[in-house]
Design a protein around this nucleic acid. Sequence first.
DNA 1: CTGAAAGCGCTTACAG
DNA 2: CTGAAAGCGCTTACAG
Lengths: 343, 343
Amino acid sequence: MTDAVDPPKARRPNTRLEEVARAAGVSKSTVSRVINGEPYVSSRAREAVHQAIGRLGYSPNQAARTLAGSRANCIAMVVSEHGSRVLNDPFFAGVLRGVHAELAGKRVQLVLMMSKEGDEQDLVNYLCGGHVDGVLVISLHGQDPLPRTLADAGLPTVVCGRPLGAGGVPYVDSDNFNGAMEAARYLVSLGRKRISTIAGPRDMAVGMDRLSGWKRGLSQARFDTDLVAYSDYTPESGAAAMADLLKRAPDLDAVFVGADIMALGALQTLHAHGKKVPEDVAVVGFDDLMIASTAVPPLTTIRQDVEQLGRTMTWRLMAELAGEENLPPFLLLPTSMVTRSSA
Amino acid sequence: MTDAVDPPKARRPNTRLEEVARAAGVSKSTVSRVINGEPYVSSRAREAVHQAIGRLGYSPNQAARTLAGSRANCIAMVVSEHGSRVLNDPFFAGVLRGVHAELAGKRVQLVLMMSKEGDEQDLVNYLCGGHVDGVLVISLHGQDPLPRTLADAGLPTVVCGRPLGAGGVPYVDSDNFNGAMEAARYLVSLGRKRISTIAGPRDMAVGMDRLSGWKRGLSQARFDTDLVAYSDYTPESGAAAMADLLKRAPDLDAVFVGADIMALGALQTLHAHGKKVPEDVAVVGFDDLMIASTAVPPLTTIRQDVEQLGRTMTWRLMAELAGEENLPPFLLLPTSMVTRSSA
DNA sequence: CTGAAAGCGCTTACAG
DNA sequence: CTGAAAGCGCTTACAG
């Protein structure tokens, strides 16, 4: 074994700024300026640098940039599971797709973090430690203090979905209220008389906003709004809520379900009780997941554009980081009704 | 405006290693050692440092660590959409959950990147530029050259799902072959005589492995394996494939569908053709998505543990980064059958 | 428009 | 077991 005699590994794997400078015949400063798109660089120098970069396959060392500069060139997306509610898959993936689409071409990395109840302090230390320029938070629990904490620490933050406990923190949400109101009105227009709803949990704004919209739609038409059951975004609890409603009002002829995933369960219960959809009971969901179209019967639902939610959050955050002023404190994305067979 | 007169913003927002050292009464070196869990630190010093860190809420500057050390303390998860096939949501979210679970407590960040056809060069430059210690790739297309490229560049890489075009790159996958074989055998054991299958696309190993397993299961029982239709992981194409099979063999009495999402479409077609499930046609899916249990009828399926896939990939990668040797070149996770009403 | 020099906050031999 | 010093690869005033 002569390992100990090996020459010290000349670890210098990557092209460095200095080599680009040499190749282009300019100083490091100039290369840096070109990379950062600063003005006051002669087009001659600029071109030489671009060529050298291309030829050498140079990729700037982000750690060095972050350390030297003031920006991290990095934003975090934190999924806060405060209360350990399980992540809603299609929603999360859709938002993420939007975030990425909006980030495309910008030289900003996305780091993903999840917080569970208890390890919040570490997370906050990290986020506020200058490692990221801003954060996108997807909080699954309305009262989550995280957005407030981050915003108070001066970190640009945008929340997905109206936060219940973080007044003043910018957020982006679907227009749940108007979407739900449209659903209620549609059911009224269909001639339904006894219209119920299955609402999401009371501690999340999304559930409350959809419930409020439904109530508003019905009360404007002078209908009762007493047939409300709560559920928690699983097919199983949707099924249970439907059973509850049916027990309380065997004559109900319509139900607005505040999420497609719960509507799937409701459909099962209706089927089990011998109720035909839509003949006996009309069903309208919310979200328009991929599976809405293959439900039996295919589900009429209020579509929200989840990817657009991600794009818009990202746009709002990047605008703030770019120093734009007077940005809107919140943004509501319109929903649209998709009519299929269930109502 | 007297802005110009303002004192230069004393931007020194975060506690630095040096302050911790001072507070603990030791040198920076010692603090560094404690943070990195190195041996040869007196327990006295170690304790003082921990106390100081806690008191000051210190969070090490990652950029500085990366720049000074050799590790980035960061791994990338890249979703390669080579060919722009859409991201399969529940799968992706499940894997991600697993990755995070496995990373919990380790001081490693996860950065997420998506590659589209065309921007691969940038991605490769970035990844090979020392910004990450290793990469987890979820490739949606079997022939994707990315894993090979990364591995060849010496970057520790683990692929999710058997890669078709990247022999030699470590991967983790569900045991699709045996899962599908179990499905085929089960249908045989049910007394079905004419057993068909809807397979995924031919350019993805997952589709091919499930098809092979089905074939093996049938041919062992001396059944024909001619009734194969291909589909592409959407309910719509699953519905079309089922219609095709029904046209070719009106007497078929069973179908193994290589993905629940396609099974949903198949169920629709069967329903439209007046076939009762399972009486006329038994249906077995694969994946066990949340929606399998709310299909009509509830779907018998082969369960794969997607979160475990994420955990295992991460474990494999971290083990390699830790310098472990003779690690398995691939890991196959067992599947299990979940019996519901459809077969 | 351009370059030389300091400094960002750590880790890592090296010397004790 | 511990500390002083060099250096990681950039950006940013500063001086021209």
